[in-house]
Design a protein around this nucleic acid. Structure first.
Lengths: 229, 229
DNA sequence: AGATAAGTTTAGGCAATCCTAAATCTCTTG
DNA sequence: CAAGAGATTTAGGATTGCCTAAACTTATCT
């Protein structure tokens, strides 16, 4: 019953479901345009695929309103996400990939890797619960820890917070964040927030010493934080 | 210059090239029918793909005569074969896959794995030169050890030979061979060959003790051997 | 040589995915 | 409330890869 999962869904379909899953978590329903933007595909193509996904019962679609995952679609999205994140862990921890390059590689492999491969990797890693960028890894049975995190750009001056997760799509951004010491686990204090979307000055303590650095709002928006505890 | 190699060739194209490579090593040119049989595809479909491969300069095609790899096609085939075999090694040696299941998994992954991933795996394994079934692994620069091996079905009664390679496509066959102790490295003596394609009785010494077993000709034909040395 | 079997190619289709251009809908704003 | 901006969908195409049925080639056998 679990083995047949290999070719049930095509690569593109898995990508759509992942994108819709992500978009639904932020806004409400996923709009055609947002899906198109995220997948770098024309909106017209998304319309076409949306019909097919709806036909397959993976999403519900209210025309002009947006798209939502069904239970089946959500579970397929979470399976793909699990694959992706386990792969990222494995590539980083076992094969020595730098953290800015695992996303792209995992993006390819997630559509080809069997359930068995993923579970063997997960076991070799001791069943990790977060990927190298701090994203939670869905369990085999489709549960995810969905903690609402604030983005660093929303944190008030003076607050001390702990970095929990960073967006992993852009390799260059990841390299820069690594250079700054902004990675999951690092402690950050907001020293200053310049007005009018101005630079945010941080004290960053990633375990070693600390440094003070200023970053822009748009970069800060890609960094998610929780209580410093 | 090496990175662009990811999406140049599609999965099906890589499969055709591998098949043609194999067929060319046995017979002379690869025939439409043989390719179709090997890929479990209709001959008509092969005709169509053959035109596309020829257009791309990967093969030459003499209508009704067969197909041959060009230098470019051969090098692409060897790259895919390297990927496949490194993956088989890695799955077996690092992730503990049983040898009868690695082929199928590698078949999927070989189209998605980047050059970098393969080289990281190869390095982790100490640059192996044979896969778990004894097939030689092409080097990064496209060289292969192409030793002509005899199949076990051709060996004369009384001879002592060493198993070098077994065909890896059929999982059940592999399980049975493993049970018999017929694996690369095993020493085998032909005790008896019954006439009229009758059973071949072997003395098998796979390192531990030895046993005597009889197998059919068609199974023996899938086992390749060299000097016992 | 002519007939036939076997193998190959062409013709015509289908499904998945993507595209651009044009039509349509929704929503906000004057 | 009508108009326009912006988002969405439909129309019409292209490509890859596969299929069946029919036409065609090659080679063999009498």
């Amino acid at each position: 019953m679990a083995e047949s999962a290999r070719h049930v869904l095509t690569g593109p379909v898995e990508d759509y479901l992942k994108a819709i899953y992500d978009l639904e978590r932020v806004g409400d329903a996923a709009s055609t345009n947002d899906i198109a933007l995220r997948l770098a595909i024309s909106p017209a193509s998304v319309s076409g695929m949306v019909r097919r996904l709806a036909d397959q019962g993976l999403i519900t679609h209210e025309p002009y309103r947006g798209v939502r995952l069904t239970a089946g679609g959500r579970s397929a999205a979470l399976r793909t996400l699990r694959r992706h994140r386990i792969l990222e862990c494995y590539l980083t921890e076992v094969l020595g990939y730098p953290w800015d390059r695992v996303h792209e590689e995992a993006e390819q492999l997630e559509h080809a890797a069997s359930e068995e491969l993923i579970e063997r990797m997960a076991k070799a890693l001791g069943d990790p619960i977060h990927d190298p960028h701090g994203a939670p890894i869905p369990t085999r049975d489709g549960r995810v820890e969905e903690v609402a995190l604030r983005s660093l750009s929303e944190v008030a001056q003076g607050e001390r917070v702990r970095v929990r997760q960073v967006q992993d799509e852009d390799a260059e951004r990841l390299r820069y964040l690594a250079e700054l010491g902004i990675r999951p686990g690092a402690l950050v204090r907001i020293l200053d927030k310049a007005p009018f979307e101005g630079p945010i000055t941080l004290w960053i303590d990633d375990g070693g010493g600390g440094t003070s650095r200023a970053i822009g709002v748009s970069l800060a928006a890609q960094v998610f934080v929780g209580a410093s505890e």
